[in-house]
Amino acid sequence: MSSAVDTLEQSEAYMENPKLQKYFKNVWLKEKERWVSMYRVGKMRVPVGTNNGVERQNRMLKECHIKFQVDKSLSGLVKVLHKDFLPAGYKKYIDENALASDSYRSYLNYIPPYLHNRPPKIVKHCMKRLNNASSIPTDDVTRVGCTVFKVRSSESLLEYEVYFGSESEFPKCSCPDFKKWFLPCKHMFAVFNKYDDVSWNSLPKWYSDSVYITLDNYVIKTSDYNSLKQSDIALSR
């Protein structure tokens, strides 16, 4: 961290930009724990597919909701937010949950039941790792404790340690993939493949039922399936 800061401060772009220097020292560096990865080890992170979520929402509000409104006053804006923008966003959230649930469509046969009723991105993540795990020989997977395992890397001489966690401890694998996403990696699935007494259910329930990796059952129950548009979702049929 310190060497990276030194490199930045010695760069030509930094030294020639007083505004950047002021922002970096007075704003960014003071809040480094919020966005530097080394300070977030052991915490589940949620990928955000946009550089600025607030700006994205602002653009949608202006281009899709306000652009054709006659009343441009503050009261007109509040009306659009209350009657149009927020309800539309909430309906989209409900529809996306409903479309991904097994109440709307049955999952493909090769998708394990424990991946049903989860966000499509989570299902895709896990299915890719599950497929990759099939190439790991069972001899490369060894048990070193009740819930601790060693898995030899298929790309190097390294061994990764897999721990399935507890009610008070986060599950983990020492591989880069798990450290980046905090989601099940291929080494975890390799353990599932070898040992009959270890499965998805070996993960703590608070983790496997986390709101980050499950659908919102409450809004699914309130969804009107007849109003949903037909959509070709890759993970359902």
Rank of each mutant, 00 (worst) to 15 (best):
D140Y: 14
V162A: 02
I213M: 06
S134Q: 11
K221E: 15
V27W: 01
N51Y: 10
E159A: 06
S103T: 04
F189W: 02
H65Q: 09
Y90M: 12
V148G: 03
I213T: 04
V144E: 13
K19C: 09
N217P: 00
V123A: 00
V211S: 15
C126S: 06
V54N: 08
V27F: 08
E31F: 02
A190G: 07
I233K: 01
P204M: 11
Y195M: 06
S223M: 05
S2H: 04
N226Q: 14
N97A: 05
D196Q: 14
D140I: 00
V78C: 10
C175K: 04
V198E: 04
R56E: 11
S208W: 03
D177V: 12
L108Q: 08
D84H: 05
F68Q: 11
V36L: 15
W35M: 11
Y195K: 07
L158Q: 13
Y39K: 06
I66R: 07
Y207P: 01
G76E: 06
E33A: 12
D71L: 07
Y163K: 05
E12I: 08
E159Y: 11
S231C: 14
I220Q: 01
S135P: 02
V219S: 05
K62P: 00
A234W: 05
N97M: 06
T7R: 09
Y107R: 03
V219D: 02
S156T: 13
C146M: 09
V48F: 04
N52S: 09
C126K: 01
A234P: 01
P119Y: 05
R56M: 10
I220M: 05
N131L: 13
E155F: 08
P47T: 09
K150L: 13
D216A: 08
K121N: 14
K179G: 11
P171C: 07
K62E: 12
S210V: 05
T50Q: 12
L74G: 00
Y110N: 15
T7I: 10
K67M: 12
I220N: 02
P184Q: 07
V27E: 13
N131H: 11
W206S: 10
N132T: 08
K180C: 11
Y225E: 11
F182Y: 14
W206T: 09
C146V: 13
L86F: 14
Y163S: 06
N132L: 15
K180H: 11
K25M: 09
K32F: 00
I94V: 15
G145L: 05
H82V: 12
S174N: 09
D6C: 00
N97E: 08
Y114P: 01
V148R: 14
V141W: 00
S208A: 07
K186Y: 06
K128C: 07
P119F: 06
D84Y: 03
N131A: 15
Q57E: 14
L61R: 04
K229V: 13
A98K: 02
T50R: 13
Y195F: 15
L130R: 03
T147V: 12
H82W: 10
Y23R: 03
S106V: 14
E63Q: 14
V191E: 01
P47I: 07
V144F: 05
N52Y: 03
V78L: 14
Y195D: 08
Y107E: 03
Y218W: 07
R152F: 10
K194I: 08
G165L: 00
L29Q: 05
L74T: 10
Y93M: 08
F164I: 15
Y107S: 02
G165Y: 01
E63L: 13
W28I: 02
K30R: 14
V5Q: 06
L20F: 05
K124C: 10
N17H: 07
T222A: 12
L183S: 02
K128P: 00
